[in-house]
Amino acid sequence: MTRRKLHPEEEELWRRVASKTERLHPQPKFDPEDFVTQTPAPGPRPKPTFDAVRTLTPSMPSRPTTSVSLTPSITDQVRAQPIQMDRKAFDQLKRGKLRPEGKLDLHGMTLDRAHPALTRFVLGAQSQGKRLVLVVTGKGKNRDDGGPIPVRHGVLRHQVPQWLSMQPLASAVLQVTPAHLRHGGGGAYYVYLRRNR
Protein backbone atom coordinates (compact mmCIF):
# COMPACT_ATOMS: atom_id res chain seq x y z
CA MET A 1 0.00 0.00 0.00
CA THR A 2 1.44 3.37 -0.97
CA ARG A 3 0.97 6.46 1.12
CA ARG A 4 -0.58 9.49 -0.41
CA LYS A 5 0.88 12.94 0.14
CA LEU A 6 -0.90 15.16 2.60
CA HIS A 7 -2.72 18.22 1.30
CA PRO A 8 -1.43 21.58 2.60
CA GLU A 9 -4.42 22.05 4.94
CA GLU A 10 -3.84 18.54 6.38
CA GLU A 11 -0.16 19.33 6.98
CA GLU A 12 -1.11 22.56 8.77
CA LEU A 13 -3.62 20.71 10.97
CA TRP A 14 -1.00 18.05 11.81
CA ARG A 15 1.55 20.71 12.81
CA ARG A 16 -0.95 22.40 15.15
CA VAL A 17 -1.86 19.09 16.81
CA ALA A 18 1.77 18.02 17.13
CA SER A 19 2.81 21.36 18.70
CA LYS A 20 0.22 20.96 21.51
CA THR A 21 1.03 17.33 22.46
CA GLU A 22 3.35 16.14 25.21
CA ARG A 23 5.29 12.89 25.41
CA LEU A 24 3.78 10.24 27.66
CA HIS A 25 7.21 8.98 28.71
CA PRO A 26 9.73 11.77 28.32
CA GLN A 27 13.23 10.55 27.55
CA PRO A 28 16.27 12.23 29.11
CA LYS A 29 18.25 14.42 26.83
CA PHE A 30 21.23 12.75 25.21
CA ASP A 31 24.58 13.92 26.53
CA PRO A 32 27.59 12.27 24.84
CA GLU A 33 29.76 13.10 27.89
CA ASP A 34 27.76 10.55 29.93
CA PHE A 35 28.88 7.71 27.65
CA VAL A 36 32.60 8.41 27.55
CA THR A 37 34.42 5.63 29.39
CA GLN A 38 37.97 5.27 30.48
CA THR A 39 39.67 2.22 28.97
CA PRO A 40 41.47 0.22 31.64
CA ALA A 41 45.11 -0.63 31.30
CA PRO A 42 45.59 -4.08 29.78
CA GLY A 43 46.37 -6.78 32.31
CA PRO A 44 45.16 -10.11 33.62
CA ARG A 45 41.51 -10.17 34.56
CA PRO A 46 40.53 -11.68 37.88
CA LYS A 47 38.40 -14.82 37.55
CA PRO A 48 34.90 -14.33 38.94
CA THR A 49 34.00 -16.44 41.93
CA PHE A 50 30.59 -17.87 42.73
CA ASP A 51 29.97 -15.05 45.22
CA ALA A 52 30.88 -12.45 42.60
CA VAL A 53 28.43 -13.93 40.14
CA ARG A 54 25.71 -14.05 42.77
CA THR A 55 26.24 -10.42 43.76
CA LEU A 56 26.18 -9.30 40.13
CA THR A 57 22.71 -10.76 39.59
CA PRO A 58 20.71 -10.22 42.80
CA SER A 59 17.51 -9.33 40.99
CA MET A 60 17.22 -12.59 39.06
CA PRO A 61 14.03 -14.41 40.07
CA SER A 62 14.57 -17.83 41.52
CA ARG A 63 13.14 -20.57 39.33
CA PRO A 64 11.52 -23.67 40.74
CA THR A 65 13.83 -26.63 40.45
CA THR A 66 12.73 -29.38 38.14
CA SER A 67 13.94 -32.91 38.48
CA VAL A 68 15.53 -34.45 35.45
CA SER A 69 15.80 -38.19 35.37
CA LEU A 70 18.34 -39.64 32.97
CA THR A 71 17.07 -43.17 33.49
CA PRO A 72 14.32 -44.37 31.17
CA SER A 73 10.80 -44.59 32.55
CA ILE A 74 9.67 -47.89 34.04
CA THR A 75 7.36 -48.44 31.05
CA ASP A 76 10.28 -48.02 28.65
CA GLN A 77 12.43 -50.37 30.74
CA VAL A 78 9.75 -53.08 30.69
CA ARG A 79 9.20 -52.64 26.95
CA ALA A 80 12.94 -52.92 26.30
CA GLN A 81 13.15 -56.39 27.83
CA PRO A 82 13.80 -59.16 25.30
CA ILE A 83 10.80 -61.17 24.16
CA GLN A 84 10.77 -64.58 25.88
CA MET A 85 7.38 -65.80 24.64
CA ASP A 86 6.01 -66.69 21.21
CA ARG A 87 6.33 -63.66 18.92
CA LYS A 88 2.82 -64.04 17.44
CA ALA A 89 1.25 -64.29 20.89
CA PHE A 90 3.33 -61.30 22.05
CA ASP A 91 2.05 -59.16 19.16
CA GLN A 92 -1.53 -60.13 19.99
CA LEU A 93 -0.84 -59.33 23.64
CA LYS A 94 0.48 -55.84 22.82
CA ARG A 95 -2.61 -55.11 20.73
CA GLY A 96 -4.91 -56.16 23.56
CA LYS A 97 -6.27 -59.16 21.62
CA LEU A 98 -5.50 -61.74 24.34
CA ARG A 99 -7.86 -61.79 27.28
CA PRO A 100 -6.32 -62.10 30.77
CA GLU A 101 -7.44 -65.18 32.72
CA GLY A 102 -7.04 -63.48 36.07
CA LYS A 103 -6.75 -59.99 37.52
CA LEU A 104 -5.14 -58.56 40.66
CA ASP A 105 -5.92 -54.98 41.61
CA LEU A 106 -3.28 -53.44 43.90
CA HIS A 107 -4.90 -49.96 44.08
CA GLY A 108 -4.61 -48.44 47.53
CA MET A 109 -2.27 -51.11 48.91
CA THR A 110 0.96 -50.35 50.67
CA LEU A 111 4.18 -52.03 49.58
CA ASP A 112 3.99 -54.33 52.63
CA ARG A 113 0.55 -55.60 51.62
CA ALA A 114 1.05 -55.56 47.85
CA HIS A 115 4.15 -57.79 47.68
CA PRO A 116 2.64 -60.84 49.45
CA ALA A 117 -0.63 -60.38 47.54
CA LEU A 118 1.26 -60.35 44.23
CA THR A 119 3.28 -63.43 45.18
CA ARG A 120 0.17 -65.41 46.20
CA PHE A 121 -1.73 -64.34 43.09
CA VAL A 122 1.00 -65.16 40.54
CA LEU A 123 1.99 -68.49 42.07
CA GLY A 124 -1.67 -69.45 42.51
CA ALA A 125 -2.48 -68.54 38.90
CA GLN A 126 0.43 -70.63 37.65
CA SER A 127 -0.63 -73.63 39.75
CA GLN A 128 -4.13 -73.35 38.21
CA GLY A 129 -2.63 -73.53 34.72
CA LYS A 130 -3.35 -69.90 33.77
CA ARG A 131 -1.01 -68.33 31.22
CA LEU A 132 -1.95 -64.63 31.15
CA VAL A 133 -2.89 -62.51 34.15
CA LEU A 134 -3.33 -58.78 34.61
CA VAL A 135 -1.78 -56.89 37.53
CA VAL A 136 -3.28 -53.42 38.03
CA THR A 137 -1.01 -51.03 39.91
CA GLY A 138 -2.54 -47.68 39.02
CA LYS A 139 -0.53 -44.79 37.66
CA GLY A 140 0.19 -43.36 41.09
CA LYS A 141 -0.32 -39.96 42.62
CA ASN A 142 2.21 -37.18 42.59
CA ARG A 143 3.02 -36.81 46.29
CA ASP A 144 6.39 -35.10 46.01
CA ASP A 145 6.29 -32.09 48.33
CA GLY A 146 9.61 -30.72 47.10
CA GLY A 147 11.60 -31.99 50.07
CA PRO A 148 15.26 -32.95 49.96
CA ILE A 149 14.49 -36.62 49.27
CA PRO A 150 12.54 -37.13 46.03
CA VAL A 151 9.40 -39.27 46.18
CA ARG A 152 8.85 -41.57 43.23
CA HIS A 153 5.63 -41.08 41.27
CA GLY A 154 3.68 -44.37 41.21
CA VAL A 155 5.58 -46.50 43.73
CA LEU A 156 3.69 -49.74 42.98
CA ARG A 157 3.98 -49.20 39.24
CA HIS A 158 7.78 -49.08 39.63
CA GLN A 159 8.06 -51.84 42.20
CA VAL A 160 5.89 -54.59 40.64
CA PRO A 161 8.21 -55.29 37.63
CA GLN A 162 11.14 -55.61 40.06
CA TRP A 163 9.24 -58.05 42.26
CA LEU A 164 8.27 -60.09 39.20
CA SER A 165 11.94 -60.39 38.20
CA MET A 166 13.01 -61.71 41.64
CA GLN A 167 12.52 -65.17 43.15
CA PRO A 168 10.12 -66.85 43.79
CA LEU A 169 8.19 -65.08 41.02
CA ALA A 170 10.98 -65.04 38.42
CA SER A 171 10.68 -68.81 37.94
CA ALA A 172 6.93 -68.48 37.26
CA VAL A 173 6.98 -65.39 35.00
CA LEU A 174 7.93 -65.64 31.33
CA GLN A 175 7.14 -62.09 30.17
CA VAL A 176 6.01 -58.77 31.65
CA THR A 177 4.73 -55.97 29.43
CA PRO A 178 2.60 -52.84 29.91
CA ALA A 179 -1.09 -53.49 29.35
CA HIS A 180 -3.11 -52.29 26.39
CA LEU A 181 -5.38 -49.26 26.99
CA ARG A 182 -8.48 -51.48 27.16
CA HIS A 183 -6.92 -53.30 30.12
CA GLY A 184 -5.50 -50.34 32.03
CA GLY A 185 -2.70 -48.90 29.87
CA GLY A 186 0.25 -47.51 31.82
CA GLY A 187 -1.36 -48.40 35.14
CA ALA A 188 -1.36 -52.18 34.57
CA TYR A 189 0.93 -55.00 33.44
CA TYR A 190 0.32 -58.18 31.53
CA VAL A 191 2.13 -61.06 33.22
CA TYR A 192 2.60 -64.06 30.94
CA LEU A 193 3.29 -67.18 33.01
CA ARG A 194 5.36 -70.26 32.31
CA ARG A 195 3.63 -73.59 31.96
CA ASN A 196 3.30 -75.40 35.24
CA ARG A 197 5.37 -78.58 35.21
Rank of each mutant, 00 (worst) to 15 (best):
L13K: 13
G186R: 09
S73Q: 07
R15V: 09
R3Y: 11
P48K: 11
D51L: 14
L104G: 02
P178I: 01
L13A: 14
D91F: 06
G102M: 04
Q159N: 14
V68P: 03
S73E: 06
R3I: 05
R79F: 06
N196V: 03
R143L: 10
A170K: 15
M109H: 15
P100Q: 06
L56S: 12
R120W: 00
Y190K: 02
N196P: 00
M166T: 10
T2N: 10
H183R: 03
G108V: 07
R99I: 06
F30S: 06
D76A: 15
F50P: 01
D76K: 08
I83Y: 04
P58R: 08
T66M: 10
A18F: 11
N196E: 15
T21L: 15
T65R: 11
D91Q: 13
G140Q: 04
R197S: 13
R194N: 13
A170P: 00
G102A: 15
Q77R: 12
L24N: 00
A80L: 05
A114S: 09
S67H: 10
T65K: 14
T21S: 12
D91P: 04
R95W: 01
K103D: 02
Q92C: 10
P46G: 04
S62P: 05
G185S: 11
M85T: 13
G124M: 03
L193A: 00
V155E: 13
P8S: 13
K141C: 01
E22G: 03
S19M: 11
T49N: 06
P72T: 09
K103C: 09
P32W: 08
R54T: 07
T137R: 05
D76C: 04
R16N: 01
T119I: 14
G146H: 02
H7C: 04
P64K: 14
G140A: 07
R15C: 03
S62E: 15
L24V: 08
W163G: 01
P100H: 03
L181P: 05
P150L: 06
V151Y: 00
D34N: 12
V135F: 00
L106W: 01
H180S: 14
S165R: 15
G154C: 09
D91C: 02
T21H: 03
Q167Y: 04
F30D: 12
Q162G: 12
D86R: 04
G184W: 02
S67E: 14
A89N: 03
D112P: 00
V53N: 03
W163P: 07
D91H: 05
S59T: 13
R152G: 08
G102S: 13
R131H: 14
E10P: 01
E33A: 15
L193K: 00
T57P: 01
D31V: 10
G154N: 05
V191F: 05
R15S: 09
P40N: 01
H158K: 10
G140T: 03
A89I: 09
R113S: 12
L193W: 05
L106S: 11
I74E: 06
L156Q: 03
A52G: 13
W163E: 00
Q81H: 11
